[in-house]
Amino acid sequence: MADNGQVKTVFTTGEVAKICKVSQQTVIRCFDSGRLHGFRVPGSRFRRIPREALITFMKSNQIPMDHLETGKKRVLVVDDDEAVVEMFNELLERDGRFDVRTASTGYDAGIMTEQFRPDVLLLDFKLPDINGNVVCRTIRSNPNYQHMQIIIISGVADPDEVAELKAAGADEFIRKPFDINAVINRIAEMMKVG
C-alpha cells in the first residue's frame, strides 16, 4: 500500500487483478473484449486502466470495493461513551478526508483493528474491559501495525499515567474536553494528509 498520501489514478492489469481478486489473464481478457475500458501505453503494448474505468467496471460486475484504495485515511474511534463516539464520527466524516469506524470496548477495538487496519486509532484511556495502555501494548507487539498512529483521548490527565501510556506505545495524548480543530489538524498532521 502506497502511503505517500497520493491517491492512485492509473492501474496496471496486475494491480487490477489484485484489487478485484481475479487472475491477471481474466483482466486482460475483459480489457481486450472492451468490458474494462482503458488504453495502451504509447509505443508499447502495456495496458493501463484509469481509476474511474476501474470503479465503473467493479460496480457493474458487483466486485467489492474494499481493496480499492479510497485515498481516505482510516480512523478507528474507541470510546465507551456513545455521545463521544458519535461526535467524533460526525466530525471526521464531515471533514471528508477520513474513513471512520467505531468501537466501544477493547475487544471490539481488537476485531476492528484486524478487519479495518486503521491508520489512526483514537483511544479512550478508560474502557469498560481493558485500559488503553494494554491496547497500546498489544498493538505495538504486532509487527503488522507498526505504522499505526495511536492517540489517547482521556478526561483524566495524570502525568504519571500519560508517561506510562507513551511508554506503552501511544503517540499522542489529548485531554477532554478539546478544541475540535486542534484534534483534526493533529490527526492530519500525524498522517501527513493534505
Binding site: D81, V84, G155, K176, P177
Partner: peptide, 8 residues
C-alpha cells in the same frame, strides 16, 4: 469530562 467534551 466526557459530557463536557461532547458539549464543547
Amino acid at each position: 469530562n466526557n459530557p463536557l467534551a461532547v458539549i464543547s
